[in-house]
């Protein structure tokens, strides 16, 4: 494996991680804590939106995010030919 390839793979990985962590930050810290009062003026069903993100929405997003990351990484592994076996 050429070392250039390994570096490109690592850069692609870092971009992906960074993107995922931005979403991670937005749903929990931004929507659930910092902007909670603003979002609470919006109602979805019987939930205030900020409250919903803090107690439900952020957790659902975390689950989706983790699987999204895993599947994208598995694709990157093959693209850069660094996959196992």
């Amino acid at each position: 494996m050429a070392s250039n390839n390994a570096q490109d793979y690592w850069k692609a990985n870092l971009r992906l991680v960074l993107g995922c962590l931005v979403v991670w930050f937005v749903v929990s810290y931004l929507f659930g804590i910092l902007l909670v009062d603003v979002l609470n003026t919006i109602n979805i069903g019987g939930y205030k939106l900020g409250f919903w993100f803090a107690q439900q929405g952020s957790i659902y997003t975390f689950v989706v995010l983790t699987f999204f990351y895993a599947s994208r990484m598995n694709k990157l592994d093959r693209e850069f030919d660094v996959h196992e076996d």
């Binding site: 991680v17 995922c20 962590l21 909670v36 975390f62």
Partner: peptide, 19 residues
């Protein structure tokens, strides 16, 4: 609402762990 810190804190750590 204030207890949300435990809900987010004890699940969001797995995102860090996974990545």
């Amino acid at each position: 609402y204030d207890a949300s810190v435990y809900l987010m804190g004890w699940t969001g750590g797995y995102v860090l762990l996974a990545m």
